[in-house]
């Protein structure tokens, strides 16, 4: 491995550790949250370095973008933290314990890097039968479709949970004119790029999650700029959008179980078309659910 690449990796690693430390121990909570957002962006770079472009796309949109908006809007409703008296004895004990646990974990994790790796060859040998040509999409929607189905259910559960909490409506701060102007340009772009990522997902990095997160980012931006009407839960269309991913996925799985080869086993000729159909529905559901999670207020989620 060339020295320059190692240098880049080490620099990225040190920066990540510094930002993570600042997120936890920054003097003001605001500083901590901004460090955390920067941490997410750098993490996307690390995923790209490790050869996982799917993850880099998802992290940049979800990890850095949406989580940042969530944290900042929660900060607006929180009292500032009281200063914590630091105790030198506790810090010393934490440090000692930390080093011990670090040594134990490293001894457990580092040998894993030498283990055999049979899965990539297995996936590649079955890729022809999956209906798509990008291995990560094939795993997500064919070989391990259970994961994706349950993940959509978790997302639905989170929306329902947030709805139960009846978040307090708060007047939003006045809208900055420049934000309105910019979001008029950026929102159509997020639709185009989201659609492109979705379409590309069957043969190259991209797919339902990245596209859904980008669409949600567009919706959140328009909503914050005051350009979008309230997303009302009574609106049947919105409920349909939130549910369509899980509903279609379950229908396909049940139809397979009753008439075909079994639960989540697609018929061979149809698998490509079915995967694209499920991906489109999942993108819409993910976009609607994430937007509701981020900008949903009492007027929007309540009865």
């Amino acid at each position: 491995m060339p020295a320059t690449e190692l240098l880049l990796d080490i620099t990225l690693g040190v920066l990540l550790l510094i930002l993570a430390g600042a997120a936890l121990h920054g003097t003001r909570l605001y500083t901590g949250i901004i460090s955390f957002i920067a941490f997410g962006l750098l993490l996307a770079l690390v995923w790209a370095r490790l050869g996982a472009p799917d993850l880099a796309l998802a992290e940049a949109a979800i990890g850095a973008g949406l989580t940042g908006v969530l944290l900042l809007s929660a900060l607006g409703r929180h009292a500032d933290e009281p200063a914590q008296p630091g105790s030198a004895v506790r810090t010393l004990a934490t440090l000692l314990l930390g080093v011990l646990v670090l040594i134990l974990l490293l001894r457990a994790v580092l040998p894993l890097a030498q283990g055999p790796q049979p899965l990539p060859a297995l996936v590649n040998s079955q890729l022809e039968a999956s209906g798509v040509s990008h291995p990560v999409t094939a795993v997500l929607l064919n070989f391990r479709a259970w994961d994706t189905l349950l993940e959509l259910l978790v997302l639905l559960l989170a929306v329902l949970g947030v709805r139960q909490l009846q978040p307090a409506g708060r007047p939003r701060p006045g809208v900055w004119p420049l934000l309105q102007a910019w979001s008029r340009i950026l929102a159509p772009l997020s639709v185009i790029i989201g659609g492109y990522l979705l379409w590309r997902g069957s043969h190259a990095p991209g797919g339902a999650f990245q596209a859904g997160a980008l669409l949600a980012a567009g919706v959140v931006m328009l909503r914050l700029a005051g350009l979008l009407p309230l997303l009302r839960w009574e609106n049947g269309l919105l409920r349909l959008l939130v549910l369509v991913g899980v509903a279609l996925f379950l229908t396909v799985a049940a139809a397979g179980a009753w008439f075909g080869a079994g639960w989540l086993n697609y018929p061979a000729h149809w698998s490509g078309a079915l995967i694209v159909l499920i991906e489109v529905a999942a993108t819409l559901s993910i976009a609607a659910s994430l937007s509701l999670l981020v900008v949903g207020e009492r007027q929007e989620l309540g009865r």
Partner: peptide, 27 residues
Amino acid sequence: DPVLQALVVTGLVVAVSATAFALRLAV
């Protein structure tokens, strides 16, 4: 290894759902 990468893509979405719910609970 596409299997591990796909697991992490799933994990990211689950993590952001849990974070959103946890933040609402905290508020």
